[in-house]
Amino acid sequence: MRAIIVDDEQMAIENLRLKISGDDRITEVETFRSPLKAMDYLRENDVDIAFLDINMPVMDGLTMAKGMKEIRPDCSIVFVTGYSEYSVEAYRLHVSGYLMKPASAEDIKNEIDFAISRKKNPAPVSEAPLRVQCFGNFEVFVSGVPAKFKYTKTKELFAYLICAKGKTISNDELCSVLWEEEEINLSKKSYFRNMISDLQTMLKDAGAPDVLIKQRSALSIVPDKIECDYFSWLQGDPIAINAYRGEFMIQYSWSEFSLGEF
């Protein structure tokens, strides 16, 4: 694995270089005090893992990471920082991880482990009959192919039910989420009924008709019958835990708010 270190402090670079070089899997380590020079290097050279300081003059680590995503999207990025406050922003950028200075040899080993496993297992495309992805954009796959919905809002309806983790949600609540401030008139109610049919059709085609439970004026999904990264996470699956990058159902603003489950 080829590594680079970018930090404006020479001592921090040396400290990290010593520990990184100690790992047998690392074949090369290039170091840079200037992020701009590091970017020039990256344009010409492929690198597997990059350890970036966040707090640097001229170009900070976050900006550099954004730039790196364009030219070397497969390179794992690990922030090494003295400030824990940056952890929030760092993860929103799809970085592999972040470490607090001084990073221990064990921390570094974990990051290298993870970078390698990412390379070996690039997001496996599951052929499962029905697979739901909540990390990043909300997506539904039927036998590995994006599910077909007649209405865009049907997908959002399904997302909301998934987010509810199997809890029963009233049609009224679902309508108010799907149409936010708008009045729920008869035509919307009729549209809503069509959406339920649309969802039922999709599930039936996926061979999973019993995923959706339809009551008189409420709906719920059965989590056990769905392969889903979010549900795997809730069950403590380490792969799901490490796969999460700080983005959840990006398309839907309601995913930021409580579903009143507390």
């Binding site: 824990s84 406050e85 952890s87 929030v88 993860y91 607090m100 996470w233 835990i241 999460y244 700080g246 959840f248």
Partner: peptide
Amino acid sequence: TISSFKDPML
């Protein structure tokens, strides 16, 4: 050493 998170999954 304190690590603070806005996102519980992170």
